[in-house]
Amino acid sequence: MSAGPFEHAGPFEHAGPFEHAGPFEHIGLLYSTPAEYAAGCGAFLRRALDRGDPAMVAVPGPNGAFLRESLGAEVADRVSFADMTVAGRNPGRIIPRVLLDFARRHRGRRVWIIGEPIWPGRTELEYPACAAHEALINLAFAGRDAAILCPYDVVGLLDEAVSDAHRTHPVMADASRSWASAAYDDPVRTAAGFDRPLPPPPATARSRGFASPGELGALRAFVAARARAEGLGAAVVHRVLLAVNEVATNAFEYTPGGCEVTAWGEPEAFVCQIDDAGHIEEPLAGRLPPDDPLERGQGLVAVNEVTDLVRVHRHPGGTTTRLHFARG
């Protein structure tokens, strides 16, 4: 390794605080310039490649292109790249389909992943799901042989996002050093803190209650009619039906009193909300795929897979699950 960006000692060469950490490292990287981005990410990747370990970069497309450029082909060709705005459009999909997927493809080896799930274009509605995802990484990867570096654009992002990063990452870093984050807290409690009330559905929304699983067919017909009235194409309608049916089937199986389904169109998305009287106790529900994809328990993972944003809000009366499907 002698390519330019790696000449200087990177922030992780003298990383006292986490040298004795468990096998899993989860580091928030604060950057304010492209040079800092390249230096921080480059140093991290150098640690991986020096050890001959598999490495992946899952960041927004332009950032990935920039990194590829600044790393040089010799390094970039040894790293897998994914566009986080596609693979991680739905933050609930990142753990199962981006991070764990890469770890599984390199079973038995330490994996190094740069994951940038929060970028300035994330919407206000997406943000709490993204921050909860960052907290839950700590739970999903506890004890696993992996290192995950999450870059935060301190210039482009709101202050809230940067201060939250200190709560969701046990270790923080910038272009020159790294330190144990004093604000880091229990990931389950932190994730629960991002469960925020949802804006009410618009007046144009249509709702219908369903009492028993015998009404699943009627429930799908109701949702399909709303989706088609909103002009959704056949492929999206099928994704909607698969996801809504799965959430509703769970509601019938695990909660008393059936569920209520509310659907509406927004300029950018079709939204479908399922309200039931139950509470999911497993914080990683929908984020840990079973080893065998044919096993049970795949349901909510599949919901995350086919949905562009899932917001779950627990309240004293039960759970609201809001599914967003991008148009087109």
Binding site: R220, A234, A235, H238, R239, L241, L242, N245, E246, T249, P293, L294, R296, Q298, G299, A302
Partner: peptide, 30 residues
């Protein structure tokens, strides 16, 4: 329409080499 459990059932038969599917549309293929 097939829910995930039904798709898993069909997939299990295919994976075991015991069945092939005829006429799977794009949604089911996905």
């Amino acid at each position: 329409f097939a829910d995930l459990a039904a798709v898993r059932l069909l997939a299990g038969a295919v994976t075991a080499g015991s069945a092939r599917l005829r006429g799977a549309g794009p949604w089911l293929t996905d």
